[in-house]
Amino acid sequence: MADAPTRRHHWGGLVWTLVRTDFKARYHGTVGGFVWALLKPFTMFLVLLGVFSFIFASDPVYKRNLLLGLFLWDFFAEGTKVGIISMHQKGYLLTKTRFPSWIVVVTSASNAVITLAVFTVAIVGFLALTGRTPSPVELVLYLAYLVAALLIVAGISLAGSVLFLRYRDLNQVWDVVTQAGFFVAPIIYPLNILPERFHFYLYLWPPTAIIQFSRAVLVQHDIPTLRAHLMLLGMTAVVFTAGAAIYRRFAPRAVEYI
């Protein structure tokens, strides 16, 4: 195939239009509609808090850990779920003309990113109001973990979106994986209730590291070691690179399966 014709493309406009229309279609273009997106993890928080705060009553930071864990989990679950079906959903554009299909995959996470951004502002504001303001270093590290989470979601979405066109029940398979993954990640329980020899295996599930590291800097004010950071960096690189490689392998003929 010849290279794309030499011409200035305005993909910035496409990205913005996709983000804006996805938001509009999802929440009917209203702020009221968007409140539902925040309500979902928050309701889950209240219910789980009601039950589990009795079990973990001795843990003084259980509430904050649970809230942070739930919102980060929601970002991961929602982002990958929408990402896997993104090329299928935007098939009506992909069959029209030639443009880089990864744009629709990556922008599909935008609603999840917006929810997480609003939550981040809220929780940092809450911490500041209650006299537990995170230091600039802790904030920068937290934002870096969010970037890692976004790259992991993007990697899974890139691979999943092209594979879903060939395997139409992949979203259901992924539903089962995330359902089990919710309990593998230490969201409703503190990681230290499990024997230390299991921790390594739980950390192989990407959300575990993102959630634990974010809790360490925002709640415990205890920065993880350099070695731990390098492992997170390595895992993010592996997930994103593998996802991008699978995408590159299958994307050129993906439209034929739409």
């Binding site: 011409r7 305005h10 406009g13 996709l18 229309t21 009506y92 029209k96």
Partner: peptide, 25 residues
């Protein structure tokens, strides 16, 4: 006739289709 998002109005659909065809906003 099939290149559209049925949930969006004509203006948003014009912006979507036009921008994949390489026009700026």
């Amino acid at each position: 006739g099939v290149g559209w998002n049925p949930e969006l109005d004509a203006i948003d659909n014009i912006l979507l289709l036009g921008s994949v065809m390489g026009m700026s906003l």
